[in-house]
């Protein structure tokens, strides 16, 4: 049981990191970025390349991975989002699908299909309260918590956070108060790209990077956002952890002492869980319902 909780915390930290940034993007811009999973992988693969192929030390490789992720998200915003989202907020959904194909092809050409791990060799594990966790996993859980606390502080206790909240509520009204909403749009999008890259690096250090997992990452992150109430940062973070725990607990327990769900169904369980949750509360856990005809 403790091991399942530890696994849920590890997987949830990765998902919360990605979903939190995306929830801000949705709140500020009102758009979905379906190339997110590929952006996660680019961050991870870049770090892998600098560390394993170019022979750089781990820390500068991580800095390069994050920088490439930031550059990619800036490019994505300028080419695939900005020219479209004012015309119709659904257009970026289709343009980012196009970007996801392009990035998928590039990842396959540059890094090939085989799994890549940023740290080679076996990791040292520690036995804490009945659970086996590696040093890297503990660092990642603590780092994610740290990043989320910084987010909480910036969003709720600084003038910059209040500007973001103003743009989330109404960007034209915010602009009439002197807030540079377009610059904030760009900033928040790049920030979400940086968090996605961190997620990719986290994944590459903890397990493996594989080109086939991109869409699954994207869909799970958005499932967390929809279930949390779209645009609600804390709702998305909560649901990211909820999905991770549900994945671990449903496949990790012998139900009624005999029956168990095979690990291959982990993704199915998470998505089915969100659909059931939406059946109960269609507008998401932390959002009020909107009227429809």
């Amino acid at each position: 049981m403790t091991q399942l909780i530890a696994n849920g915390l590890i997987a949830g930290s990765l998902a919360a990191l990605i979903a939190g940034g995306l929830a801000l993007v949705y709140g500020v811009l009102g758009v979905f970025n379906l190339a997110l999973g590929q952006m996660v992988l680019i961050g991870g693969y870049s770090t892998w390349w600098f560390h394993q192929v170019a022979g750089w030390a781990l820390f500068p490789s991580i800095v390069m991975g994050i920088s490439i992720g930031a550059l990619l998200s800036w490019f994505t915003f300028e080419v695939f989002i900005r020219p479209f989202y004012k015309l119709h907020r659904f257009l970026p959904l289709v343009t980012t699908i196009a970007l996801s194909l392009i990035l998928d092809g590039m990842i396959l050409l540059l890094f090939e299909q085989r799994p890549r791990s940023i740290l080679s060799g076996a990791k040292e594990t520690m036995h804490i309260a009945g659970a086996y966790v590696s040093k890297e996993q503990i660092i990642m859980i603590v780092l994610t918590m740290g990043i989320l606390f910084i987010f909480a502080y910036v969003l709720h206790s600084t003038s910059f956070g209040r500007k973001i909240q103003a743009v989330v509520q109404h960007d034209h009204a915010a602009m009439s108060l002197g807030i540079r909403a377009p610059a904030l749009h760009r900033f928040v999008f790049i920030l979400s790209g940086v968090l996605a890259s961190c997620g990719g690096i986290y994944m590459g250090i903890d397990t493996n990077l594989s080109p086939t997992i991109a869409f699954s990452i994207t869909i799970k992150a958005y499932a967390a956002i929809i279930a949390g109430g779209k645009g609600n940062f804390w709702g998305a973070v909560f649901c990211a952890y909820l999905i991770a725990f549900s994945e671990q607990f449903v496949v990790g327990i012998h139900w009624f002492g005999a029956f168990y769900v095979p690990p291959g169904y982990q993704n199915t369980v998470a998505l089915a869980f969100i659909i059931i949750l939406l059946l109960v509360k269609p507008s998401g856990l932390f959002s009020s319902a909107s009227r429809s005809a």
């Binding site: 979905f32 379906l34 907020r89 659904f90 959904l93 869409f215 699954s216 869909i219 958005y222 499932a223 929809i226 779209k230 993704n267 199915t268 998505l271 089915a272 969100i274 659909i275 939406l278 059946l279 269609p282 909107s290 429809s292």
Partner: peptide
Amino acid sequence: SLHLEADGFGVMSIAVHLM
């Protein structure tokens, strides 16, 4: 489609396919 907003449905329709 009746219960979700249009873009939310777009994403969840992919989720159903992957599921």
